[in-house]
Design a binder for these strands. Structure first.
Lengths: 292, 292
DNA sequence: GCTATAGTTGATTTAAATTCATCTGTAGAG
DNA sequence: CTCTACAGATGAATTTAAATCAACTATAGC
């Protein structure tokens, strides 16, 4: 809402009435007598509409929250942290379902969803949570000697995800190292399986840095290199456009965004130190949901 | 405002609140409890806005009416009839100016204008008054013998308007008669001069049928042929878009439209009978301005 | 006499509202 | 019991309104 928009609207209103609602002084404007009176009546009426709207929103606030979350995000990020939200808002009843497809918010009960993709979904409200960035991880037990430079990786088995066969090639290309797979790689059907394989010392997997903080903290995995694959996909919080947000939705959005900002800071420290800071120690609820 | 538009708006509002405002029955809809309550509050507020708006419009109703009218329309059509308007609305103070150019309604005092042209003026409210249609006219004294068919015209001098040299050619083309001017024509600088020349027996002029009813009634002119030149230009009543019409503007518009419809009916009878009916005898004020 | 800023303006872009064409289901007629 | 006509819904396309952008004006305060 720019000053220009307001100026245009005032001008149109004055043209409609054929009279001046404002007196133009060089660097300020003041209401005319007519404008003053009209403003008072209109404000009263708008307040009435606002009250009725607020009331209607408030009366059907159920304290329920229906979420639909991308599976990987749900199991690796949200579930480990959701108790923090539940502690902050014990009166909000959460119902979470895992889903990969798009939600038809007009028909579905779902209030909010976490999507994974490029963010180009028309007709819905989209908020970026975090980029999906991959880093090579392995079991510390597997390393024969420290990884000093990127080409050292080629001495190990690389774990691939079926249908995402070019991820390693992209990663090497971005790292500026010629990729010529020497050892025969292994292929799995999902990202969670390659990660599991890496934990079991089968080789290097590409894992999203935010999804393995626990394994790194417990020493099951390590990320010896500080080189991310910047994918064009990300995780997004989405919900129906132009809908009145319930108290529960506002609370969840704020909590999620806040939690995410800490989570992202934490990730940035991971690759070098290999020791993620426990979330519990860092989390500070904002004023918005501290109150409850 | 189609039912479709309302359906879309209701749907959007329900999506905004996340609840149903209407119960859908097969062939009718009814408000829900929530919808009923909301509707009541909103209607009250809208009524408040409407009252304030009506009041603001009413309080600056001056009873003045500033008109800007195309010169030919003003002198040949409006002025002979304006007393009828003044009689019907004696408390409306009229100020008329003749002007050919476009009005900047945002800055000008002019409330309404009569434009002559093709009707493609963006950003203003445009109402067609009547098409500009030309018919050949001459002085009854000049005719040597009755005009039976179109080609008989070529025996007479044709009176042209400077800068509109192709009017006669267009007229003959539309009439389906090959146009080969035999006598040398005469050229004048405006339509009113060619009409004056025709009255004085100099030849045939092309005149708008609505502008010569008085001359035809008094026998100064006659229109022996029933063939109009359908031009792409017309007279339009125009005013600023999206402006609140004052009482005076509504009164004038209704009077003008009504007067015009009688005037047009009358014209259609002219070419054959050559005796226009007096306007005064036909005019019936509509309920809208009969009251005052 | 500068400089920064409130407000304006016209062109352009963006978003919202409306219409169009089509469909669905049933109430009421025959 | 079927058939027709109509209220309402729907998705795509169109039209209209609103917001932004970029550029400008005039002056208040330094």
């Amino acid at each position: 809402m720019t000053p220009s928009a307001i100026s245009h609207q005032i001008k149109a209103l004055e043209a409609f009435f054929g009279l001046e609602l404002f007196i133009r002084h060089p660097r300020r404007i003041a209401l005319t007598q007519a404008g003053e009176e009209y403003s008072k009546s209109i404000q009263k009426a708008l307040l009435e509409i606002d009250r009725a709207t607020q009331k209607l929103i408030a009366t059907h606030q159920s304290g329920q929250l229906h979420l639909s979350v991308a599976p990987a995000f749900l199991t690796r990020w949200l579930l480990p942290r959701i108790s923090s939200f539940h502690d902050a808002f014990p009166d909000i009843e959460i119902e979470i379902s895992a889903a990969t497809g798009l939600i038809d918010f007009a028909r579905d009960e779902t209030d909010m969803a976490v999507y994974f993709g490029t963010g180009d979904w028309p007709g819905i409200e989209v908020h970026l949570l975090r980029h999906y960035r991959q880093v090579p991880v392995c079991s510390p037990k597997m390393l024969k000697k420290p990884i000093d430079n990127i080409s050292d990786l080629l001495d190990y088995t690389l774990l691939h995800v079926n249908k995402r066969g070019d991820e390693w090639a992209k990663w090497f290309k971005q790292a500026g190292v010629k990729f010529q797979e020497t050892k025969k790689g292994m292929v799995f059907s999902s990202g969670s399986l390659t990660t599991a394989a890496a934990i079991n010392g089968l080789g290097f997997a590409l894992a999203d840095i935010g999804f393995i903080s626990e394994e790194i903290a417990s020493g099951k995995l390590m990320a010896p290199l500080d080189e991310y694959l910047k994918t064009d996909k990300s995780f997004y919080l989405v919900y129906q456009k132009n809908r009145a947000l319930t108290y529960s939705m506002i609370a969840f959005q704020r909590w999620l965004m806040d939690e995410m900002s800490w989570s992202v800071k934490e990730e940035k420290a991971v690759p070098k130190r290999l020791e993620p800071v426990r979330i519990e120690n860092l989390y500070q609820p904002t004023a918005i949901y501290r109150q409850k």
